[in-house]
Nucleic acid binder design. Structure first.
Lengths: 298, 298
DNA sequence: ATGGGTCGATAGATAACTTCTATCGACTAG
DNA sequence: CTAGTCGATAGAAGTTATCTATCGACCCAT
């Protein structure tokens, strides 16, 4: 039964019988049979099929919702029982927005000291993808913006507030300033994240409300790439302060606070709103609450 | 997997492999194998066994907790999908304290009008048993005292407040009074519920705090039996007002309000605190909220 | 139109698992 | 010390699950 529920979870993720089967480690006929069997037990079609996958029926959507919960709880149970015997073990799967990647280490490092047998996998994803991954049980926790995009059935722990800096060469225009305004930043050609990233959308909004427009010279989904360009001294970018600090400032590159308004976005940990949580996840929440004050103070 | 979880739920209820197996509709070796297999998957012993069942290990208790949730959710899923197609169907299992039995009809009657395909099973149980049955998924809802005995993970809907009456023959001592005090009631030989019932414990407490003592002439776990005795005109009892009204007062039997203090106990619906609820249960909660004001007004 | 490619369903064989009956061994109570 | 209860075990029979191979529908490009 639970295997079957796992099947339709995979199907919801992959939207493709073959790939879903592969994800479950079974062949496509097995997965097809599993879904069909589930449909038999429920007495309703769950999946609309033509000659290919065409989404779920309303009943299928409901089963999907339940399946997330039931499968999640089953995993949590296994985890919990296992951790009763061997302490925390296993793999903690985290996804973070690119601008928060630098501070993940502030969470994972003390976590690892307390629980040395837990392994980590960290993905860089957009804030929207992070919520999807959480829904689909593909990650255990996310680090993303809190309180902006609609967050579903999740619990959140605020970690720190993102403040923006203009990263630019000291000898570029504005390079000698101690603070700049968003209106001024709007005049500079920038390297920014691609528009599917919420950070970019936030910056666009700030630029626009300062009367400017967002016409970045260069876009990328990688902060590393953006920073590498700034590093040459010939490009500028807008980044959260924490990230700029982590990537390392040189003599020639300055991180200038952007005021008027000083934009602040709260970044935090996001975990499935399920009680009780998986022990590894619960421990991460504990760690986040412990670390948050330090991050804010810094 | 879910079958196995069902096994240990049955085992927790029955505390006996053979009976648990019977409850699950399998033979005892099958249940034994199922539990053993679960233990294999978890990597821990879940049940302490000598030559007989000796309770659960700590890990077993945790698995039990999860199993309640997972099995409950699985049933709720089936129910919900089924009700999407056929409207509400199935059987609603309710347990109520004896003094509340009379008002269950106030809930089931309008419910049945809205959902004619739902069948009911109603048990008379003590308030403690009701909470156990809820825990073990043996009932879908309970009707019992709210806010006195420890209620676990349940949601409650207040239904009405229980006010006490002295039921006695008009020509008995106190029979001509319009109100009596608990101190006066303490002087009368009474027919009361057995002490395992919370109603009895409440009345005992009230009598004692009025300086009296509880020495009932007759005890029973059946309100019908108590009422039948009062009906002869030769016995007296203390009952909630609603119950007395329902059982029907004759010319010779009076229900006299007991004041000083006017004791009030809130009675309400108790359902598992699980979101979302099973549709049949959710509908009962809706009905309870609808009916409660009428009951209070009456 | 038509042929190559993709997708999911189906058929049939095999492997794996589940459940049953029958029985055993340990323990308990009279 | 014996009868009875309880849960574990053995072995057979039946069921179910999964795999490989293939089919049929559909899409799209030529």
């Amino acid at each position: 039964m639970i295997d079957r529920l796992d099947f339709i979870l995979a199907l919801a993720r992959e939207r493709h019988f073959g790939r879903a089967a592969e994800a479950c480690g079974v062949t496509q006929p097995t997965l097809s049979a599993g879904v069909k069997q589930l449909e038999g037990q429920m007495g309703v079609l769950l999946v609309n099929r033509g000659s290919r996958f065409q989404g779920f029926t309303p009943e299928g959507e409901r089963v999907l919702e339940w399946a997330r919960r039931i499968v999640g709880d089953t995993r949590a149970m296994r985890e919990e029982i296992n951790s009763l015997r061997h302490g925390l073990t296993g793999r903690l799967r985290i996804a973070a927005i690119p601008t928060a990647l630098a501070m993940v280490a502030a969470l994972t490092t003390p976590y690892r000291e307390r629980h040395p047998n837990v392994q980590f996998t960290v993905w860089s994803r957009t804030s929207i993808e992070i919520l999807e991954l959480l829904d689909n049980l593909e990650i255990d926790a996310g680090i993303t913006y809190l309180g902006n995009e609609p967050v579903g059935r999740v619990n959140t722990v605020p970690l720190y507030r993102e403040r923006y800096r203009l990263l630019t060469s000291a000898d570029a225009p504005l390079g000698n300033r101690d603070t700049v305004t968003w209106a001024e930043v709007a005049q500079v050609p920038l390297c920014l994240l691609t528009p599917d990233m919420q950070n970019r959308r936030i910056i666009d909004r700030l630029l626009k409300s300062a009367g400017g427009e967002s016409r970045p010279t260069l876009e990328s989904d990688s902060m590393i790439l953006l920073f590498a360009h700034v590093r040459t001294g010939r490009w500028a970018s807008v980044m959260p302060a924490k990230l700029a600090e982590t990537l390392g400032l040189t003599d020639t590159i300055r991180a200038i606070p952007i005021l008027e308004p000083e934009a602040v976005q709260t970044i935090g940990l996001v975990v499935p709103a399920r009680e009780p949580m998986m022990p590894v996840t619960a421990a991460l929440v504990v760690e986040a609450k412990r670390v948050a004050p330090q991050l804010e103070a810094a």
